[in-house]
């Protein structure tokens, strides 16, 4: 295993019944790297992301996270798995804030319950993170009173409150009104500047160009092509990549 890898995926497959969504994916994510995954709908990119923290159980293959086998020949106990999951922040397309809790409680629940950290420390940290995403004044608000963009920024801050080593973004702007996409992308960009390791599944090509260290194009359950943003967007080599980019780029 590469010393620098945060995640190393080998031969990953995932079947839903007869449907094979991932057909053998190999992937490494280096410390501090921003990996952006693009591809058409149904290409398996979201499933790949959801396999990384085992929200979906892969069918075969292996996932090694910071030297620990998350999935593979040896099975981890539920408890170890919960611990590793809490180390990987995830942001969803549909925000998934807890509607019965205030913004502050949304952010302090997991640090207190799963980590056992003290309430005051959690709240101080939550307020710091809320200030970072520009939502300090919303600490006492409930999710229903927030706009989509605000919800997603809270969701990002909530994931960060667990002090994760990697952040997984599953189409974080796909459910947003167009005028709110930017504030969320900016929050993600800020994170990349702070050196956070990230895997971002997105349809925002402009964002991919600007923020990615490496772009990965997936189609039909396989990685078709990967490289720097310049390589993928300026001189793609595979016919499928060229076809896709022609369809999505203006």
């Amino acid at each position: 295993m590469n010393e620098n890898s945060v995640i190393e995926v080998t031969g990953l497959t995932k079947k839903f019944g007869a449907l094979e969504v991932l057909k053998g994916v190999d992937l490494q994510v280096a410390q501090g790297e921003v990996l952006v995954v693009i591809g058409p709908s149904g290409s398996g990119k979201s499933t790949l992301l959801r396999c990384l923290n085992l929200l979906e159980t892969p069918t075969s293959g292996s996932i090694v996270y910071r030297g620990k086998t998350l999935f593979g020949k040896t099975a981890l106990s539920e408890k170890e798995l919960d611990g590793l999951r809490s180390d990987m922040g995830m942001v969803f397309q549909s925000f998934n804030l807890f509607p019965h809790l205030s913004v502050l409680d949304n952010m302090t629940l997991a640090p207190q319950v799963a980590r056992g950290w003290k309430k005051e420390e959690c709240e101080t940290e939550a307020m710091r993170l809320l200030a970072m995403v520009g939502l300090s004044e919303k600490a006492k608000s409930y999710p229903t009173s927030l706009s989509g963009g605000q919800k997603q920024r809270v969701a990002i801050a909530r994931a960060l409150a667990m002090k994760p080593h990697i952040m997984l973004f599953d189409e974080p702007t796909s459910a947003l009104d167009p005028e709110m996409v930017k504030e969320v992308l900016n929050a993600i960009k800020d994170l990349s500047l702070k050196g956070m390791t990230m895997v971002v599944v997105t349809h925002e090509m402009g964002f991919a160009k600007e923020v990615a260290d490496r772009v990965l194009f997936m189609d039909e359950g396989l990685i078709v092509e990967q490289g720097t943003p310049e390589e993928i967007f300026q001189s793609p080599k595979q016919p499928r990549t060229i076809q896709f980019l022609q369809a999505v780029l203006p």
Binding site: N53, L55, E78, K79, D82, G83, R85, S86, D87, M88, G89, M90, F92, S94, N96, L97, F98, P99, H100, L109, A110, V113, A114, R115, A155, R158, A159, M162
Partner: peptide, 26 residues
């Protein structure tokens, strides 16, 4: 919503903790 369970689990809460703190209150 199914996303509630996923969000809570992704934050590291166990199945039981998720039920108690997130799902049942809703």
């Amino acid at each position: 919503d199914k996303g509630q369970m996923e969000a809570a689990r992704s934050l590291g809460l166990s199945y039981g903790q998720t039920m108690r703190k997130v799902i049942i209150p809703q």
